[in-house]
Design a protein around this nucleic acid. Structure first.
Lengths: 98, 98
DNA sequence: ACCAACAAGTTTGCATAACAAACCAGTTTA
DNA sequence: TAAACTGGTTTGTTATGCAAACTTGTTGGT
């Protein structure tokens, strides 16, 4: 297998999924945001966004903090250190593949 | 949605799958090859490779020609014009996303 | 001549995964 | 006080990727 194909085959599938890639790319820039911001920015539906976030949390890439804004629930999201590292790695892989 | 996210969300899912991305990246370079070459080069198993190729054929991205090498069957693969165009588009999307 | 092993793929079955609809707890508005 | 809205989560269905098993034919051994 050549280098290009190797790079492709080693891409992190958790990050590779476009829905999650959008989430991570956003969090990499804004550091922290809430569920609704992600919802509007990514144009996903709520169920979808929720499950992708849960998946990212399970992978240790995203931190989910549940709090309140006034009396309404609010979910805050941040990239973990591991998440940032995985994203950097993913980008290196993409660069290597193209 | 910002430009980066738009680019991500519009990535062609048929091409985005790493298995198929490897196939297409290879075919984009070599123009034509056979099943076994792809098999060894991508390190997939046969079943997997076969179904990805069928999917790519269904999308109109790859042409499958069944022939013989001596008495043994041989399957030749080429990118179609549409396949090349889709791959170019995909790469533009990736560039735009990172 | 016959049977086992191999070549080149394809089909089948299963476990995940993505997606959207339905749901839920609490809050604000009319 | 009931209807509608907020901010999500859970559930159910569909699709997908994957590998094991199968298929069709060929070659090799005895």
């Amino acid at each position: 297998m050549n280098e290009q194909l190797r790079a492709i085959s080693e891409l992190d599938r958790v990050i590779h999924e476009p829905g999650r890639l959008m989430i991570i790319a956003l969090l990499a820039v804004v550091k922290e945001c809430d569920f609704l911001y992600l919802l509007h920015e990514t144009e996903m539906n709520k169920g979808n966004l929720s499950s992708h976030l849960t998946r990212l949390e399970g992978a240790g890439y995203v931190e989910i903090e549940k709090t309140y804004r006034g009396k309404l629930p609010q979910t805050l999201l941040r990239l973990t250190r591991a998440g940032r590292a995985a994203f950097d790695e993913y980008r290196k892989g993409v660069k290597a593949a193209f």
